[in-house]
């Protein structure tokens, strides 16, 4: 195993982590600010990917496709918040899970109704395709580097939004004490719609970015959703910083574990058993990580005392 290969895998882990961060940021904001478990977050990711694929197919422009994914997911998020989610804030988590699970089914079948059952085509634009050679001779796809960059920029933008702007102050205040900021005259329902749409837009962006290198199909959001929940549990619910650290941890653990565990087992047993056992254990690794983090810090790495 050469150093170059290890570095390349670290980059892969980073890219995966950054993508998870885009998903987890919205999820953790919505949970932190409104106390809402939103299972339909993965559906918004799918909406973003489908909007991007449709616009890219019609116009041929990847930038327009990204804009469309943000707009479509934000609009879908705002619409869902106003019509359904708003009624769930005072209900207990079980009701929220039930209602947002229903939303998953509605979004999935709605998408199938509009776009059909077959995966859509969305490709990396010409100017971002192919590998580039990094210092040290690592050949790495330019598009994946772009995802890392976009994710880090969005992350920085979110920190700035939360820490430095008026809206950010309101969001933080809303997390700390909902009744009090309502009493201070902040329009809480508008704030909630805004936060929800923001989270949805981030999920939609993640869907569009990833859709270009994966398959744009109905149900694509649910596997990512599970990972995003793992991320926010590890990072601490409601914390953007936690989401970032958690996402990178999960991304790196998952990628590096999948590569190195089978190799490690191969030192001790015959290859066929080693690959199959290593692969099985690698897929459990992030849950083991989650359990360990929760053992040491029950409210997550950056979680307040919930």
């Amino acid at each position: 195993m050469s150093l170059i290969l290890i570095l390349e895998q670290v980059l892969n882990g980073l890219q995966f982590g950054v993508m998870l961060f885009l998903m987890a940021a919205g999820l953790t904001l919505v949970f932190g600010v409104m106390g809402l478990i939103n299972l339909a977050h993965g559906a918004l990711y799918m909406v973003g990917a489908f909007a991007a694929a449709a616009v890219a197919g019609a116009t041929g422009s990847f930038l327009l496709a990204l804009v469309a994914s943000l707009a479509a997911a934000a609009a879908a998020g705002a619409l869902v918040e106003v019509t359904v989610i708003r009624r769930l804030y005072d209900r207990d988590h079980l009701d929220q899970v039930l209602a947002t699970f229903a939303l998953i089914l509605i979004f999935s079948e709605g998408t199938r109704w509009v776009f059909g059952s077959f995966p859509l085509f969305l490709d990396v634009p010409e100017y971002l395709s192919g590998p580039v050679t990094l210092p040290g001779g690592i050949k790495y796809p330019l598009y994946r580097l772009t995802i890392i960059a976009i994710g880090l920029v969005v992350g920085a933008g979110l920190f700035w939004l939360i820490a430095r702007t008026r809206i950010g102050i309101q969001i933080r205040a809303g997390e700390a004490d909902r009744e009090m900021i309502a009493a201070l005259g902040v329009d809480i329902s508008k704030l909630y719609t805004l936060v929800f749409a923001l989270g949805a837009a981030l999920a939609g962006l993640a869907g569009a970015l990833v859709g270009a290198i994966q398959s744009v199909q109905v149900g694509m959001g649910e596997p990512v959703l599970i990972l995003a929940f793992v991320v926010i549990v590890i990072g601490g619910i409601g914390s953007i910083k936690g989401a970032l650290v958690g996402a990178l941890l999960v991304g790196l653990t998952d990628t590096l574990g999948g590569v190195f565990l089978p190799l490690l087992f191969a030192l001790m047993m015959e290859p066929a058993t080693a690959t199959s056992l290593g692969a099985s254990l690698a897929s459990m690794l992030i849950y083991i990580l989650m359990a360990l983090v929760l053992l040491v810090r029950p409210s997550g790495l950056f979680g307040g005392s919930a």
């Binding site: 895998q9 892969n12 995966f16 990628t255």
Partner: peptide, 8 residues
């Protein structure tokens, strides 16, 4: 859905 590690 991501095969970057395998491709490497």
């Amino acid at each position: 859905t991501d095969y970057a590690a395998e491709i490497a």
